[in-house]
Structures are given as structure tokens and as C-alpha cells.
């Protein structure tokens, strides 16, 4: 008798659970549907379509014509602009990402202590990044680093002869790198949030042991901050690969394609020359490059990123 009651009630609960989980599937998918539809429509479908288009010749006016591997062959064997844009982009990424990480970490260290006036300092340091991506700052840069620009006039005061920073192929890319590093604010804020989560006891016990400041930095701050560092590194690399506005406005990709970034190259192929097929192939190569570097980053991270849950410390 008892068992019978038990089974019916169990069955009833089971029924309720299964009905509930069916219902909650529905609710769940209903709630995420805006994102899901957007993902399928504006991300997955475009990626698939650009894969197809990358094997075609397509000018937007006529239908795509299948050309097999021609776009890829042209890219790797027959397009000096492609090679140049890779060179520019890799230089930009390799120089500006580490510089930006280094500066933001140093500044975050400076700004992490609570003392009077700190919020003012933070605001001032963050301000350039706030307005950073806008075309306005690119205009400012173009003026400041021009031949008759402000930078040269100031240098002249000190008796240093300036140069056309933007018109000289040797220095043009460096003005863009400087612009990028100047806007280290959001990277810095993320470091700042990370620094605040390091337990103070670690520093206190290190002080008791008589550890010097740089030792504390090296043995506590760096390992504890390494997940944040990794996050900034991954996003910094991906972001730098897409450098566009400054290259378009400050230097227009010139002089002599010295600042012809990959994103600008792709944009011009697609929307100036209307070579949609070729641009799609470029987009796919970009996707593969970024994916490869990100995977590499994740792989290498095992050797330097420290997670507390690992249990052991990194010596």
C-alpha cells in the first residue's frame, strides 16, 4: 500500500518535472531568441556566405561567378598590397599590444591606492580613451603630427628639427601606434578591477617576511593578475588586427602604403573597388589568422597564467 502511494507520487513528480523542463526549454529559448536570431542572421549566415563568396568574382551588380581558388592565389602570389598590409598590421599588433599592456599595468598600479584626488587622476588618465575611437581624435592627431604641426613647433623650441611625422613612411605607422597606446584607458580599468581583487593579506604576510616592493610585485601581483593580463592580451590582439578609423583619417593608409592596415585594405577592396569576392577571401584569411593566434594564446597561457583553483602556486 505504501509502495503504491510512493510510486504514484513519484510518477506525478516525474511528470511534473518533465512537463516543467519542456516548458522551461520553451521559456529559455524564448528569452534568448533575440540573440539567437541575430546570431544566425547576422553572424553565422554571413560567415558561411562569405566562405562561398571567397571562391567567386562578385561585384554586387552581377551574380557571383565561381572562380575556384583564384582569389586566394591572387592574394598570396600576386598582390603586393596584401603582403604590405600584413606587414603593417603585424608590426602594429606586435608593437602596440605589449606597449599598451605595459603602460596600463604601470598606471593601474599607480592608481590603485586609495588616496585623495585619485578619482580626478583616474578621470584625466581615462579621458583620452573615452573619446579615443572617434574620428575627432584622428583629426586632432593629423593636425598635431603634420609637417607644420604642433609637435614640430615644440621640438623646434628645443632646437630639434622635426619631420613630417605623417608624411614620412618611416614614422607614419609610429604616430598611429602612439595614438593607440595613448588610449590605454579601458585596458587600464580592467587591470584596476583585477588589482582590487587581490587579497591584501598576501601583501601583508609578504611584508612580514620582509619582501621588497619589486619582489611583491613579481611574486604576488603578476601571478594574481595573470588571468586579467591574459584577457587584455587576447582582446588587445584581436582589436589591433582591426585598426581602421585612424588609418583612414590620420594617414589614409599612406604614405606609400606605410599605414595600409589589413582592415583598411579589406574595406577598400569591398566598398571602393567592389570586389566582394576578393574581400570575402580576405575576411576569411583574417578570421583564420585571428583564430590561430587566439588558439596559440590560449595554449601558451597554460604556461604563464595562474588560476587560484589550480591549488599549487607558480614559483
Amino acid at each position: 500500500m505504501n509502495t503504491k502511494v510512493a510510486t504514484t507520487s513519484t510518477r506525478r513528480t516525474l511528470f511534473r518535472i518533465s512537463r516543467k523542463s519542456g516548458e522551461s526549454n520553451l521559456h529559455g529559448y524564448l528569452f534568448i531568441s533575440p540573440w539567437l536570431i541575430g546570431f544566425l542572421l547576422l553572424t553565422l549566415w554571413p560567415i558561411a556566405q562569405s566562405f562561398y563568396l571567397s571562391f567567386t568574382d562578385y561585384s554586387l551588380l552581377a551574380s557571383p561567378v565561381w572562380t575556384g581558388m583564384d582569389n586566394y592565389k591572387r592574394m598570396f602570389f600576386d598582390d603586393a598590397d596584401f603582403v604590405q598590409s600584413l606587414k603593417v598590421t603585424f608590426t602594429f599588433v606586435l608593437v602596440s599590444v605589449p606597449l599598451k599592456l605595459f603602460f596600463s599595468l604601470m598606471v593601474a598600479q599607480l592608481l590603485s591606492k586609495s588616496m585623495k584626488g585619485m578619482s580626478l587622476y583616474r578621470t584625466m588618465v581615462y579621458f583620452p580613451s573615452l573619446i579615443g575611437g572617434s574620428i575627432a581624435v584622428s583629426i586632432l592627431w593629423r593636425n598635431m603630427f603634420g609637417v607644420d604641426g604642433y609637435i614640430n613647433k615644440v621640438l623646434a623650441v628645443f632646437g630639434i628639427e622635426g619631420r613630417g611625422w605623417i608624411s614620412d613612411p618611416d614614422s607614419a605607422l609610429w604616430t598611429l601606434i602612439l595614438l593607440n597606446v595613448w588610449q590605454f584607458g579601458s585596458t587600464m580599468v580592467i587591470f584596476l578591477a583585477g588589482l582590487k581583487q587581490i587579497p591584501q593579506e598576501l601583501y601583508e604576510s609578504a611584508s612580514v617576511d620582509g619582501a621588497a616592493r619589486w619582489r611583491k610585485f613579481y611574486h604576488i601581483t603578476l601571478p594574481m593578475l595573470s588571468p586579467v593580463m591574459f584577457f587584455n592580451l587576447v582582446l588587445g590582439v584581436i582589436g589591433s588586427f582591426q585598426m581602421f578609423t585612424a588609418a583612414l583619417i590620420v594617414t589614409r593608409g599612406g604614405p606609400m602604403h606605410a599605414t595600409y592596415t589589413y582592415a583598411l585594405f579589406l574595406f577598400e577592396k569591398a566598398f571602393k573597388h567592389f570586389q566582394m569576392g576578393y574581400a570575402s577571401a580576405l575576411a576569411w584569411v583574417l578570421l583564420l589568422m585571428v583564430a590561430l593566434i587566439t588558439v596559440l594564446n590560449f595554449y601558451v597561457s597554460r604556461f604563464w597564467v595562474f588560476y587560484e583553483t589550480d591549488g599549487g602556486g607558480r614559483k
Binding site: 554571413p46 556566405q49 582582446l235 582592415a263 566598398f271 566582394m276 575576411a283 578570421l287 585571428v290 587566439t294
Partner: peptide
């Protein structure tokens, strides 16, 4: 998708 460069989808999006 956080890590997907925007340029990858821009051409088909524009076509769409």
C-alpha cells in the same frame, strides 16, 4: 562571438 573580428561578417551583412 566576442572574439570574432567585425570585418569577417561585414561584406555579407552589407550584401544582405
Amino acid at each position: 562571438t566576442l572574439m570574432l573580428p567585425g570585418q569577417v561578417t561585414i561584406v555579407p551583412q552589407y550584401i544582405l
